[in-house]
Structure formats: structure tokens, C-alpha cells
Amino acid sequence: MRSFITRPRALAVLLAGTALTFSPLGGQATAKLPVDKLPSADCFVPPAGSAAKGGRGADTREISVAEQKAIEARTAQRLKERSARGIAVPKGALAAASIPVYVHVMRDAAGNGDVTDAQITNQIAVLNKTYGGQESSQAANTGFTFSLAGVDRFNNSNWHKDKQSSTYRKQTRKGGANALNIWLVDFAYLGIATFPWDYDRNPGIDGIRVHFDSLPGGSIANYNLGETATHEAGHWLGLYHTFQGGCTSTNDEVSDTPAQSSSTNGCPEGRDSCSLPGLDPIHNYMDYSYDTCYNQFTPGQSTRMSNMWTAYRA
């Protein structure tokens, strides 16, 4: 995930949010903001970990080594059970799902935090480009496509600042496990995501929160091409950061992403932070590089997303 900083999860007042529009259109990782855009002191700051994208905090909940092993075992069991019921992907193939996307624009009472319909359309186009492997000859086509299912806009100053996030997500989320909900907010992160294996226990908050100014045409330098949503959707589809676990052979559970000891900042060609084989995968969407540096998912990541989709979201 990419992130700025997560907001408090206190209960919200139901009447505080007023949906202004809903338009059907056919059908947790983070990075931090500049000091002058940091949230107020009542924000919840995640536990310290690897420096987040753009110098911001962690954008997913922390996964221990023990839990990581348990998740892999659980996923294997779910895939086996689904295969027995005829819910499986042929060997060598991918899930190739079409994902409906619901975008929730969280403006404050003065209308700050709004984005244009064109920006939202361009963001969906970025998701289709990046997940279609269209930014590099080395990139994998994951088989996932994204279609805009609806947009709604709220005027609520607390929600705009990502306060009461559990409440506002439960009140506004649409669709089932297969639907990607994107909440556009103004916080100290670039983005925050949930993992697919957490859906069953807390479906109401499933999705990704993205800083509204990280969309194409936004104002956050180096992070305004829409690649934050690509990164966070990767978590939502079951990918870890490429630096998960540091310089270890297990790393992010994907064999074709070289291990790295720490996250990347910028686009430092030739960076090699780990003694294990391979240079750091600085061009991978699941590192913390600049938007202009990103250009690929690997075939191994594509397979992992397909398996996670089948296990938890199909």
C-alpha cells in the first residue's frame, strides 16, 4: 500500500454525511503528505515500520511472520475446497475477472477534496493500463480489468479527513467481495488498503482509501499519475509490498520479485539493498517508488492475485 496516515476509527454521527449524487455508469499500505498537509493530532498513527511511500506511514495492517504463514496455509486450503466445488482456474490460466469499481468522493463542508468526473475516468484507465501490463514490455498482464460502477459524493468534513473511517465505510460501501470501493479523502497518506483474507470478518470496511490529490491531474508532486490506486488495489488483491519481511527468501511470497531490505524512495536505478540475488524491484507497483518509476507487476504477482481472487473474492 501507499499511504499518508490513517485516521481515527471512532464512531461517526449518521446524519453527518449527506450523499449528493450517485451515478451508475454501466453496470491497509500508505505514503505520507508534506508537513503542511498533515492531519490534526487526533489521528491514529499506525505502528512504526518501513518508511512508507513518499515518507508516509504504513498503508496496510502489520502482518507478522507467523500470521503470514497462517495466511498462506489458509489460502491453500480455500483453493483446495473451491477446486473440489468446481470453482477453480485451469492450470496455467488466470482468474481474468472484471472488477466493478465504486468511487466515493469525500468532500468537506466547503467542497474541498472534490475531483472531476474526468479524473475518475482517467483513474479507471490507469488501473486498466497497469493491470493490463501496458507500461512495460517486462510487465505481466494480470487478466484483471476495472469498470466504473458508480460515483457518489459526500459533504462531510470529518469523513473528508478520514475520521470515523470504519463508520463511513460501512455506511457507504457498495457491492460484494468482488467490488473495489475507493474512498477519496484528504489525509497524511497516499493510500491505505485492506487485504482479501480480512473480508469475511469485516466486509463493511473492505476497499482502499486514496488521497484525492493522487489521482491523475492531482497536485502531489511525484505521486499524481494515479499509480497510488494501482498500488493499493494490489494489496486489495492479495499482494504484499516487495519489501515484505525484509531481506529474506520468503519475502513477499512471490519468487520473481527479488528480495529487498527496505522500501524505495524515488527511482534509484541499480539499488540493491539485499544480499540475496537480484536488484531491488524499484519499478514494481508494490514498492514505494515515484509514479513515474512504476511500470510492472511480475508474472508471479499476477498468479498470486489470481489465486487470492479465487480464494477470497470470486
Score class of each variant (00 low, 15 high):
Q77D: 07
Y168K: 02
H241N: 14
D108W: 07
A10N: 10
P100F: 10
R56D: 15
N155I: 06
N265A: 14
Y168L: 10
P100S: 09
N158F: 01
P216Y: 08
G17Y: 09
A88W: 05
S23M: 09
M308F: 08
N202T: 05
K174D: 08
G246P: 12
L79M: 06
L225K: 11
A118K: 10
T242S: 14
E72V: 10
T142W: 03
N224L: 05
E227D: 07
K129Q: 11
A88Q: 03
E135L: 13
T18A: 13
D272Q: 09
S214H: 03
A259G: 02
Q68V: 00
F187W: 09
G150H: 05
G191V: 05
P258N: 04
P46F: 07
T310L: 04
S263I: 02
G57F: 14
C274K: 08
D287S: 15
H283C: 11
D117H: 12
L14K: 09
L239F: 02
I99E: 03
F243N: 13
P258L: 10
T257F: 04
D213C: 05
M1F: 03
Q134M: 09
N265F: 12
P196D: 03
A97F: 02
A73E: 08
G266I: 07
T303I: 05
H211N: 14
D200V: 12
K32D: 13
S40L: 14
P8L: 06
P258A: 04
I220Y: 13
V254T: 04
Y312N: 06
T116M: 13
N181G: 14
S275T: 12
V89Q: 06
L33P: 04
I87W: 06
R61A: 01
G17P: 08
G143Q: 02
T75Q: 14
H241K: 13
A84H: 06
Y312G: 02
P24H: 06
A193F: 08
R78Q: 10
V105S: 01
G278F: 13
S147Q: 05
D117R: 14
I192F: 03
E269S: 14
T116V: 15
E72R: 15
D162N: 14
R169L: 07
H231I: 04
V45Y: 14
K53R: 14
Y168E: 06
S23C: 06
I71E: 08
V13W: 00
I5P: 09
N158K: 10
